[in-house]
Design a protein around this nucleic acid. Sequence first.
RNA 1: GGCGACGUGGCCAAGUGGUAAGGCAGGGGCCUGCAAAGCCCUCAUCCGGCGGUUCGAAUCCGCCCGUCGCCUCCA
Length: 477
Amino acid sequence: MGGLRFYNTMTRSLESFEPLEQDHVRMYTCGPTVYNYVHIGNLRTFIFEDILRRTLQLFGYRVTQVMNLTDVDDKTIRDANAARIPLRELTDRYIEAFFEDIDTLRIQRAEHYPRATEYIPQMVELIKRLEAHGHTYRSGGSVYYSIATFPEYGKLSGVRLDKNIAGARVETDEYDKEDARDFVLWKAPKPGEPSWETELGPGRPGWHIECSAMSMSLLGETFDIHTGAVDNIFPHHENEIAQSQGATGQPFVRTWLHAEHLIVEGEKMAKSKGNFFTLRDLIARGYDPVAIRYLLLSVPYRQKLNFTFDGLHAAQQATERLANTLRRIETTPPAEEGSGCLSIDAIEAFRAAFRAGLADDLNTARALAALHTLLRQVNTALDHGGISGDVRTSLSHALNEADSVLDILPAHAGALPDEEATRIEALIEQRSTARQNRDFATADAIRDQLAREGIVLEDTPNGTLWKRKRQNPPEEK
RNA sequence: GGCGACGUGGCCAAGUGGUAAGGCAGGGGCCUGCAAAGCCCUCAUCCGGCGGUUCGAAUCCGCCCGUCGCCUCCA
């Protein structure tokens, strides 16, 4: 175990990772605000968190991951009101859609998905602790955090609020803050907004408090890793630190990891630019979820990821090639040990390179390069000496290990002799007979017919294989 | 105005002092009845530009040009 290195936003440096508990990592990953379908930018971050989680597991750690679901905020309230439905109905709908989407992308489930509205008592409790420590003030029925009482404020982001007021947009303050830099912990009730009766008075929570309350409730006052996208660094995570450490006096988080943004065709993704995509949009255009996953994980998380349809096409080709090679391995009988065979050394070199890539701050590009190199060696061996039974077992283990993190190889579907497959195989049988009789016209007619149905044939020394061709997405502009 | 990231072949991208991984696309060849799949060869004398440090830099320093992001609720 061990050997992992992560770039900690707090220290702005690469650090060796050691969890507080020897074999156990506790991490909090900022989740979605459930007022709409998640977009591919959100998913890039979730996939980074998935790779993080799986890498920790690969390196022997038990992981407890919490991902919050923000189900009360300005936008959820706005959209529920617009649709004239209860807030809960709106958020239930998009929570369900969220789980569908992460399943589609093979993102592993976290251990906990707390909803903000179910942690109101914990938030109130936390705010009371902050009050007891003198970090807050009340005004107009709201409770505010006084930045001036927390000297470390700004340490994570490097933002110095006193220095960048000029030029920044000046917010017209809807509430009554003493200082423009302060932020709200508890919002006074407003007409048309949900409100909770609490010891703080009626109202609803501010955005930042939920993450402090839920993370500490489920993971303890100090835990190992906190993640999100770069836009969360300021003010969200900065405020979380102020809230948590202001209340407990203990360090909040040991390692902060932040994913860079995804941009589209070189530009920030925005609904107004028409370059805004949800997972559902891409699936509807015929793209394969595994290709989308591949693309989103292929660029290391601290790099901006430029999402393009060319890139998605390339990802689709790459995943198809991986699948083809895997199929070759499975359908080729073991060879005798000999020259031209795949060596155990090649597999061990791959395992080392793959793990080294991930250990280096989740360098997925390096890990993928190692995988591609191995699979080329596999194909070369298959074309020449072959793969012996023993080597094949090791290969299989190594590939499973890699895919336990990447999850981009096709699932072993097993033999499923449904009617469709039976019919196709009967046609292939007819074609084989025709080929044996050198009746290529008939053979090709059968192949063409199947091709029109989206079935691709491959004649190999071990018989004719078939696969379903992925529907070719329409050309993008 | 403040803070920050980045600029490597047609596209994506690794590499942070020792002489350019990997993928996609392209070209040539092999295999095949023809395909498909796969393999082999090929594809950056060069890493935004100009200086500097060094025996040696894509990698360190300075300046310039360019792109992108954050600056109170956007992952």
